[in-house]
Design a protein around this nucleic acid. Structure first.
Lengths: 257, 257
DNA sequence: TGCATCAGCTTGTACCAACAAGTTGAGCAA
DNA sequence: TTGCTCAACTTGTTGGTACAAGCTGATGCA
C-alpha cells in the first residue's frame, strides 16, 4: 500500500488519459473546478497536479482559456549537411530547409563587438574578455520564434576579414567570404547540450515551463587556427538534430518517403 | 511601471544572487520562513518563486534539508569516436571513457524479445509490432544513474546472428560479432532530441524537476539494410555530446590540456 | 446590421491555517 | 563513550478564501 499524494494521483491519472488518447494533442482538459470535483480535491491540489504536467511539457495553460494538450510537430535539422565542408552554405540552409518544408522563414540580424565570455573564449582560444565580433540571428518559422544563433569571430580574424564587423549581410555567406581571402574552414567540432532555458532564452524563444532548449555549439577551424564559434539555441520541443556519418548508402535510396 | 507578481520577484532576486555568486553551487538557500520574512510574502508565495527556480534546474529541494544550488559537472561524450567505423568498440567506449575520467562505471544488462514500437519500427524499416531483440543497459557512474541504452535488432538479423538473443554479454562487442558473420556496419544516422523525462525515465535516471533528458538515437546500417537502432537517454544536466567532423587538424594538437 | 458592454466562464496571484514527514543535533541514559 | 530519544528545525501536502485578469458569447443599444 504505497499511497501517493493526491496531487500526484491527479497528475498520473491525467497523464495516462493523455497518453491513451482520451485527450488528444490540441484538445482542452476539463477546468480546474471540474477536476476538483472529479478527484474530490481542492483547487490547489488539482493545480499542483496540473503543474506537474506543465513542467513535463505535456500540457500548457493560458489564463481565461484553460489547459491544452501540447502538440509536438518536430522539425528536423540535418547538422552534418547544414554546413557542408566543400560547398559551404552557412545560414542559407535554414531558409531553404524551412521553405522546402512549406513554411515561411523570417529573421532579424545584428552585428556587434563584444568581449568574449569564458565559454566563447575557451573555444576561440583567445584571452577571456578579449573582444570578438558577434553576428546574431533571431529566427522565426511562420512568425513563431524558432532559434537564436550567435556566431563569434576572433579579433585577429576580423583584422584580416573586415567585412565580418560590418552590420550588413554578407551575400555569398561568411564561410565562402573567408575562403575567398584564404581562410578555409576544413573541419568543425560540435557540442550538443540540453537544459532549461534562462529567462532571456524563454523570452526570445517564447517558451513556457516544461520546454528545454537544445544548445548547439559549432567551433570551426582552419588548418591551424580556430576561426569561429557558433552557438545556436533551439526550442527542444520543436527540433531534432540529425547527423549522417559514414558511407552514404542504400539507407537513403530505399527510403519510400 | 510593469509590476511583476511577487513570486516572480522572489525568483528573479534569488536567481540574480545565485548567478552573481552570493549562493555558490552546492550551498544552501535560506529557509522558506526566512525568505518569507525577507520578501514580506507568505510562505506559499515564496514557495511559488522557489518552484520556478527548481523548474529551471537551478536549485533542488529536499524535505528536511532545504534548497540547494545545483552543481553542474558535465561529462563529455565524444559521439563521433564512440563507435568508430573501422575500429568498432561499441559499449566499451563508455567504460573506458568513464574510467579515464577517474570515475567508477557500473551497469546492469538484460536481453528481451519485444514488439517494436512505432518509433523503432520506422527506423528498423520493419512492420510495426513485429518482434525485435532488445539489449538493454542501465549505466551508472560512481553509483549515480547516468544513462539508459536500448538497442533493438530486427528479427531477420537475429535469425542470422542468434547470439544477439542470448542473455549474456558478447565479449568482442556486437558490432564486431556482426562483422564476423558478414554483416558490416558501414554508416549510421544519429538523431538528437531533448525533452522533459517521462516518470519512468525520471525514476531510472533519478532526476527531479527541472532536468531534461538528452535523447540520442543511432540507427546503424550495412550496405543494403538497417541492422540496429540504439536509443540512449542521458541526464541533460550531466552530459554533453560532441561531434568532430572534417580533417583532424591542429585543433587537437595545440590543445594544451 | 454592427458594435459595445457585460455576465460568466476560465486561470493567475496571494494570503491563511494545519498537519505530515524528513533531518539534525542536543542531551540524556546505559 | 556509545547509542537512543526527542525537540526543533526543514520542506511536503492539503485544505480553505478572496480577488485579479483574460477570454467568449449573449445581450441589448444605436
Amino acid at each position: 500500500m504505497n499511497k501517493q499524494p493526491k496531487y500526484r494521483q491527479v497528475a498520473d491519472a491525467l497523464r495516462r488519459e493523455i497518453d491513451s488518447g482520451v485527450y488528444p494533442p490540441g484538445s482542452r482538459l476539463p477546468s480546474e473546478a471540474e477536476l476538483s470535483g472529479r478527484f474530490d480535491a481542492s483547487r490547489n491540489t488539482v493545480r499542483s497536479g496540473l503543474n506537474m504536467l506543465v513542467s513535463e511539457g505535456l500540457i500548457s495553460s493560458s489564463q481565461g482559456l484553460g489547459y491544452e494538450v501540447r502538440k509536438h510537430e518536430v522539425f528536423e535539422l540535418n547538422a552534418s549537411r547544414f554546413e557542408n565542408l566543400t560547398f559551404p552554405q552557412n545560414g542559407d540552409a535554414y531558409s531553404t530547409d524551412v521553405t522546402n518544408a512549406g513554411r515561411h522563414p523570417t529573421q532579424t540580424f545584428r552585428v556587434e563587438v563584444t568581449p568574449a565570455t569564458k565559454y566563447v573564449a575557451e573555444r576561440l582560444k583567445v584571452e577571456r574578455e578579449s573582444t570578438a565580433v558577434l553576428r546574431f540571428c533571431h529566427r522565426f518559422v511562420d512568425e513563431v520564434p524558432w532559434s537564436t544563433q550567435a556566431t563569434y569571430y576572433p579579433d585577429w580574424l576580423v583584422k584580416e576579414a573586415p567585412r565580418l564587423a560590418e552590420p550588413g549581410d554578407i551575400a555569398e555567406g561568411t564561410t565562402r567570404y573567408l575562403a575567398g581571402i584564404g581562410v578555409e574552414q576544413i573541419g568543425y567540432f560540435d557540442e550538443i547540450a540540453a537544459r532549461m532555458p534562462t529567462p532571456d532564452e524563454a523570452r526570445l524563444l517564447d517558451i513556457g515551463a516544461g520546454v528545454p532548449v537544445l544548445l548547439w555549439t559549432r567551433t570551426g577551424y582552419s588548418a591551424d587556427k580556430v576561426i569561429r564559434c557558433t552557438i545556436t539555441t533551439f526550442r527542444g520541443d520543436l527540433n531534432r538534430m540529425n547527423y549522417e556519418i559514414g558511407t552514404l548508402s542504400a539507407r537513403q535510396e530505399d527510403d519510400p518517403q
